[in-house]
Amino acid sequence: MNTVLIVEDETHIRRMISIALKAEGFKTKESSNVQDGLVLALKEKPELIILDLGLPDGDGKEILERVRQTSSVPILILSARHSENDKVELLMAGANDYVSKPFSIKELIARIRVLLRDITPVIPEAERIRKFQDLNLDMNSGVLIFGKTHVSLTPKELLLMDILTREVGVFINQTVLMRTIWGNYNSEDTHYIRILVSHLRKKLSSLSTDQFSIETSAGHGYRFVFNHSE
């Protein structure tokens, strides 16, 4: 049974979320401030954290930044802040998803299930090790291997790399990527995919700066290519 930590200072919202999650088979822990929320996040080690930003003793981002120092637990931001800049900043800081208030409880639960599903992406047994010239992708452990260098991927980076390398050199539409990785609820939030691609590009660059890359084409999407084909 997955445990979800809810850090939210508005009692009625916190209780509503808790009741709905328990009805779906989850266990919940609750906090109304930064200090207690951080203690619970580090001590209880929940499978997912729902995090409000406007807390009475500080900004919920403090919890996000502290937890990200030691854990990759999915963190879903719940906030009344609506600007795209706020969303991008939080995603860059390590948040996995962002839901704006007011929100639908059904959508919230759907997003939670997607985040928990992404912890262990489903990969066909026959494709555990995918090889491309000198680059190997270990689908089981989520590791890219180039020579003696290894780089670990997050679940979403692994899923993106999986999609892009099924057909090397073929453009994948941005909407298709969004819906496959985040589901229909986030299909219009294109900044999500831009951030994810940016993170994956940095990891690929740490392996080699000129052997392979992710290309972008307006109207076509993204593709994985080798820059020096044999």
Rank of each mutant, 00 (worst) to 15 (best):
N2S: 14
T3L: 07
V4M: 08
V4N: 04
I6H: 04
I6G: 00
D9N: 13
E10Y: 15
E10D: 13
H12T: 14
I13M: 06
R14V: 00
M16W: 09
S18D: 14
S18P: 03
A20D: 13
E24C: 13
F26M: 07
K27L: 08
T28I: 11
S31G: 13
S31L: 10
V34K: 00
V34N: 00
V34P: 01
L38P: 02
V39Q: 06
L42V: 09
L42N: 15
K43W: 07
E44A: 11
P46S: 07
I50Q: 05
G54M: 14
P56G: 11
P56C: 08
D57I: 04
G58M: 09
K61V: 10
K61L: 10
I63L: 03
L64A: 01
V67A: 09
S71W: 15
L76T: 10
I77A: 00
S79K: 01
R81G: 05
H82L: 10
S83T: 15
E84D: 10
N85H: 06
D86A: 05
D86P: 00
E89L: 05
G94N: 03
A95D: 04
N96M: 03
N96E: 14
N96V: 02
D97P: 01
Y98H: 05
Y98E: 02
V99F: 04
S100T: 15
K101G: 10
L108M: 10
L108F: 10
I112A: 08
L115D: 00
L116Y: 07
I119F: 09
T120P: 02
V122K: 05
I123G: 01
E125V: 04
A126P: 00
I129P: 07
I129F: 12
R130L: 05
F132V: 08
D134P: 10
L135M: 09
L135R: 09
L135P: 12
L137Y: 06
M139T: 15
G142R: 01
I145F: 04
F146T: 02
K148V: 12
K148C: 15
K148Q: 15
H150C: 12
T154A: 03
P155W: 01
P155G: 01
L158E: 07
L160G: 00
M161I: 06
M161E: 07
M161G: 04
I163S: 01
L164Y: 00
T165W: 00
T165L: 01
E167N: 12
V168E: 06
V170W: 07
N173W: 03
Q174L: 10
M178G: 05
I181D: 03
W182I: 01
Y185V: 04
N186W: 08
N186V: 05
S187R: 08
H191T: 03
Y192D: 03
Y192L: 14
I195W: 00
V197G: 06
V197Q: 02
K202T: 15
K202D: 09
S205H: 14
S206K: 13
L207P: 00
T209F: 08
D210F: 11
D210T: 15
Q211M: 11
F212L: 02
S213D: 14
S213V: 10
I214M: 06
T216D: 06
G219F: 11
H220K: 14
F224Y: 09
E230N: 12
